[in-house]
């Protein structure tokens, strides 16, 4: 009997080892697939002009120069970078200031009409009016050509609101009730009790908001008229399209400069991600749980 059990144990651990090896190989391949394009962007951005001509896909560096970066840092693209940073920074702040209290309010079972509010909010997940009604709204608000037109309409994401609300619903009500007993009102209970307990989800949602504001393109083209207020994404796309010269008039911009602007575009998210990564996965998992 003992021998049989021992045999089973060995067989199980063998399967486990095979599974682990498979996992490692599979995940390595996935990582390589994810890393290769980023590596290509980096290598190309550091190459000389002549090494990037002819549609080459560089993986092994042929040359090493910071010339493209120097060009970009001393060019008009930096204004786009600061505009993007402004929109993403302020936008994330405003969005969090709206999403967190809304999530807290909707998590309260005593909120009258909570079900109706949730249904109305959920509707926006399914139906999107498109760009035209939004354009007319922005124009009516007098926000055309104003960076706030890229912040206010997107300051509340239904998806983010729902995960924040679900997370806050998972916090035992007794915590909030004891805060009330200690003399806290709703706002103080939110600030002193709920927010410190919601750090994982807040970190995840902050990243979501930041990335969504940082990457916004269509609205920036539609709502902004003055090119000095364009965000980096608009300028990057302009650079790529303009150098295509499909009408024969465009500039000839080599891929190394384009890739250097792309690196600039990836930079803030790459800087922020490691700081929130610790909370990121747990935040997502917890946000999906409904008590």
């Amino acid at each position: 009997m003992m021998a049989v059990n021992h045999k089973n144990a060995i067989r199980q651990s063998g399967a486990r080892i095979a599974f682990r090896i498979f996992n490692v190989i599979f995940l390595t391949l996935v990582c390589v697939l994810v890393v290769i394009p980023i590596w290509n962007v980096l290598v190309t951005s550091l190459a000389e002009d002549k090494d990037v001509m002819g549609g080459v896909y560089l993986l092994i560096p042929r040359s090493f120069t910071f010339k493209s970066y120097m060009r970009v840092f001393n060019s008009g693209y930096m204004r786009g970078f600061w505009n993007s940073l402004y929109v993403a920074g302020i936008g994330t702040l405003v969005a969090m200031l709206i999403t967190v209290p809304c999530g807290f309010a909707l998590a309260q079972r005593r909120l009258i009409g909570r079900g109706v509010f949730m249904k109305l909010i959920s509707l926006t997940l399914v139906f999107d009016a498109g760009i035209m009604p939004l354009y007319v709204l922005i124009r009516t608000l007098g926000l055309i050509d104003n960076l706030w037109s890229l912040i206010l309409p997107f300051a509340l994401s239904t998806f983010n609101l729902i995960i924040v609300k679900n997370f806050m619903m998972s916090i035992p009500e007794s915590f909030v009730e004891s805060a009330w007993l200690d003399g806290c009102n709703d706002l103080l209970a939110l600030v002193r009790i709920v927010i410190p307990m919601s750090v994982p989800i807040l970190a995840a949602v902050t990243l979501f908001y930041f990335v969504s504001f940082w990457n916004r393109y269509t609205e920036a083209v539609m709502f902004i008229n003055n090119s000095s207020r364009y965000t980096l994404q608009v300028m990057l796309r302009a650079l790529i399209y303009q150098s295509d010269g499909s009408l024969g008039e465009g500039n000839i911009v080599y891929d190394n400069t384009k890739m250097a602007v792309m690196v600039l575009g990836m930079l803030p998210v790459m800087i922020i991600y490691p700081f929130v990564q610790r909370h990121f996965v747990s935040g997502l998992m917890l946000g999906g749980v409904k008590e």
Binding site: G76, Y77, S227, S228, Y230, M235, E249, N251
Partner: peptide, 8 residues
Amino acid sequence: ISTDPELQ
């Protein structure tokens, strides 16, 4: 033909 706002 420049994407730099100052030049434009």
